[in-house]
Amino acid sequence: MSILKYFHTLRPKKTAAVAKERLQIIVAHERNLRDSPVIEYLPELQQELLAVVRKYTAIQDEDIKINIEKDGECEILELNITLSDENQ
């Protein structure tokens, strides 16, 4: 390895590379949202799910997380409900 190359690898990542990485992530995320027609009823679904869970146990609004991922032709609805210790 030449001296120059050696110093090159020691240098921290350039900002353009950081920008590219961040953009790839956010753009992929936003395209997913855009391509999911389901997204329109998502907030309502979230509220209704909250109501159902609350029939059985006390949870906060932020204890429910809902997410849609696209995997090829498939759409995956991911639902996470966190129950606090005292409810278990």
């Binding site: 350039k14 900002t15 353009a16 590379a17 920008a19 590219k20 953009l23 790839q24 753009v27």
Partner: peptide, 17 residues
């Protein structure tokens, strides 16, 4: 600025969009 690593390159932008 692209050469010094502080600006996205044509290829970068093209790859993303």
């Amino acid at each position: 600025r692209v050469n010094s690593g502080d600006m996205l390159s044509v290829e970068d932008v093209q790859e993303i969009l």
